[in-house]
Design a protein around this nucleic acid. Structure first.
Lengths: 195, 195
DNA sequence: TGCATTAGTGTACGAACGTACACTAACATG
DNA sequence: CATGTTAGTGTACGTTCGTACACTAATGCA
């Protein structure tokens, strides 16, 4: 490297732009955004980011983000004193939420959490459960079941020789639907705080 | 309406295209995709979809999907009896988790939750907090602070004229670090269940 | 039956886009 | 200190893009 490399900052600016507009800008727009005075600089930058695997092209040569484009740093839990900022910059562990949380996209669907019956399992009203369609569920799994015309999320438990649905909240009774229709297993969850 | 309206099929094709390439095609590419022989037809279609609120434009006039673009006809929450499978087919939400949960990528980082001090807020050991680096935090926000050489996640509260960090678990005491070093605000969280 | 409305065709044109090429400036390395 | 490498400037050019305009075809409605 013969000159200081600002590509990380440029990439960050492009990531923010994409988060706002869900689209990558043209070379001239990139130049305006990053302060370049020649489109060629933007073209060279894009070539570098393409080389590094952050950007792809569609069949008609439009710019498109790759999975790596969405990766975020995961900070370390413990950092050395005096340098809290370093904790954010130095962590090399990059992850993308989609690849992290959705293992088999074709079998995955989302179910909004209603009520507080799973509160003790950390599933609050407004959270979203990430579910995987599956025939087999084990006792102890949190599952999506079809009870009384609605989708319900409860923990699957074995009661003697039969399976039951147990809420994770002392105030709620165990459900014993018969037949028990299980649609899938909850593989994760997420929530977003309004600001 | 003076002619049959195929806009729903066209929209579906565009949604599929976007799901594949994370980008909307040009007018000529739309024409090729949908079988139009004149770009004008694609331009008119886009104008209609824009009117209907499915498509927006970036500052440099590039086409961009709106939230409605990703919206699916039926909600998952309640479905008619006997057809649980149908509920899943409609559910394919194309919004990626990254764009959903990360608003400003350049300021966003992840912090793993340790311990159970935020249990009552639905943040359990092993969860990951999505944090946004920010100077300003309001009382009531869940924040990432730097306390005793470690990153800590607590709720920021005002105690008289000073700010304190309040755990969401009755067993833990309020923290009153001085000075109070806040790195950012928690904008969301997620977890993944091991299988 | 006739008319207004709307989807799509075909052509033309200016503007914007991407690329090529020569050149300059900053920096690491030996 | 000289050299090779790389980021960015400036200019030029061919292609593609979006739009404008005139026209055709299909349909609902009076």
């Amino acid at each position: 490297m013969a000159r200081p490399n600002y590509d990380n900052e440029y990439l960050a600016a492009l990531q923010d732009y994409y988060a706002r507009h869900r689209s990558l800008p043209s070379y001239s727009a990139i130049s305006a955004l990053l302060g370049f005075k020649a489109k060629t600089a933007a073209a060279a930058l894009v070539a570098r980011l393409e080389e590094a695997g952050y950007i792809q092209r569609t069949p008609d040569r439009r710019l498109t983000p790759t999975d790596r484009f969405f990766q975020r740093p995961r900070s370390l839990a413990t950092v050395r004193a005096g340098m809290p900022e370093a904790a954010l910059d130095e962590s090399s562990d990059m992850v993308s939420l989609d690849t992290l949380l959705v293992r088999t996209p074709s079998k995955t669907f989302f179910v909004p959490i209603k009520g507080d019956s799973m509160m003790d399992a950390g599933l609050l009203e407004g959270d979203t459960a990430i579910c995987e369609r599956s025939q087999h569920a084990n006792a102890g799994d949190i599952v999506v079941a079809f009870v009384g015309n609605e989708l319900t999320i409860k923990r699957l438990m074995k009661e003697g020789s039969r399976y039951v649905l147990k809420p994770e909240n002392k105030g709620y009774p165990v459900l014993r639907p018969d037949p028990l229709e299980i649609l899938g297993v909850v593989t994760g969850s997420f929530r977003s705080y309004k600001r």
